[in-house]
């Protein structure tokens, strides 16, 4: 028996090695290997992103007790509600103002850090990234304590300096300001790091040539830096816009949508309707409401990015 095996072993494998079968050929292709290596990630995305996304679309088309398909009935109901439009307006104000200030602060800070001597730059970069690195729920709790309606640390300081305390979270407009402020504090480092990377990639020769032509710092910024950073600005703004529109933690922890529903965002309102009030389909419809609008915005922004990419190429 052992001899027979040896005989087979000495002839057949050599032939196989000389002529790989179809399956072996397929497995040896680079694209197949790449696909197999990506497979775990693809599976994770399918399970944790694509499936929940399609499930929430399906859920948003069911009636309250999830027993009947009602098409776009939940969306039709939402657009007939005043409070929902209030949420739309608030989410838009929140997202646009927060993204604007994050981009502005990120841009200014990136320039400042870029102009620091190389030796000290790393320390500053690290320190400025701290807000973005701390878990958001934890840092928001810290902010909440500082804004605490009754024992605010800020108000304590203001009062000891002889000023009046500010109703940070009990006045709806101050509450809106507070949640935007925390979002800007948290998100600006992301812009900083992206813009810093973009600044580093601008060829130094362009600035040297502009200096020879007598361009001022402002002219260099407008005519060199900004055009070279346009793509990265567009992508970061788009990314941040999507994330800020979907913000949940900051508002939920600091105001839970109050006072008078005046700080609710899509995510917090969706949580209120879906989880707290037990109307999952309506909650899903609320959370999906911005999907087409953000989708269209993404298409336009990414089209611009591609166009500029081709021009550069």
């Amino acid at each position: 028996m052992a001899d027979t095996v040896q005989t087979w072993g000495s002839t057949v494998p050599d032939k196989a090695a000389a002529k790989p079968n179809k399956m072996q050929k397929f497995l040896r292709q680079r694209s197949t290997i790449a696909f197999l290596m990506c497979l775990p990630l693809i599976l994770i995305i399918i399970c944790l992103v694509i499936y929940p996304a399609f499930y929430s679309i399906y859920l948003s088309m069911l009636n309250k007790s999830q027993t009947r398909f009602i098409g776009l009935g939940n969306f039709a109901f939402l657009i007939s509600r005043d409070t929902f439009w209030q949420v739309v307006a608030q989410s838009t104000i929140f997202a646009l103002s927060a993204v604007f200030f994050k981009a502005l602060i990120g841009l200014i800070t990136a320039h400042l850090v870029n102009n620091l001597p190389v030796k000290g730059q790393r320390k500053w970069r690290g320190m400025l990234l701290v807000p973005w690195v701390i878990p958001l729920a934890l840092s928001t709790l810290g902010w909440w304590w500082m804004f605490d309606p009754t024992n605010s640390a800020f108000n304590y300081t203001l009062r000891s300096l002889g000023f009046e305390g500010i109703p940070w979270l009990s006045d709806p407009y101050w509450a809106r300001f507070s949640v935007i402020l925390v979002n800007v504090w948290y998100g600006a480092p992301f812009f900083l790091i992206m813009y810093l990377a973009a600044l580093k990639s601008v060829p130094e020769q362009l600035y040297e040539a502009a200096s020879i032509d007598g361009a001022s710092a402002w002219q260099k910024f407008i005519h060199i830096t900004l055009p070279m950073m346009r793509n990265i600005i567009a992508i970061t703004v788009l990314f941040s816009l999507i994330v800020t529109f979907a913000n949940f933690d900051i508002v939920q922890i600091m105001t839970a949508g109050g006072p008078r529903n005046m700080t609710h965002m899509f995510a917090t309102y969706s949580f209120l309707l879906g989880i707290r009030s037990g109307d999952l389909p309506l909650g899903a419809a609320t959370s999906l409401f911005m999907f087409p609008i953000l989708g269209i915005a993404a298409v336009f922004i990414l089209r611009g990015v591609r166009k500029r990419g081709r021009e550069i190429g």
Binding site: P149, T150, P167, L169, S170, D171
Partner: peptide, 12 residues
């Protein structure tokens, strides 16, 4: 009451 009551949660 204090105007803070509008921002109180259940622990306020």
């Amino acid at each position: 009451m204090s105007p803070d009551v509008f921002a109180w949660d259940d622990a306020g």
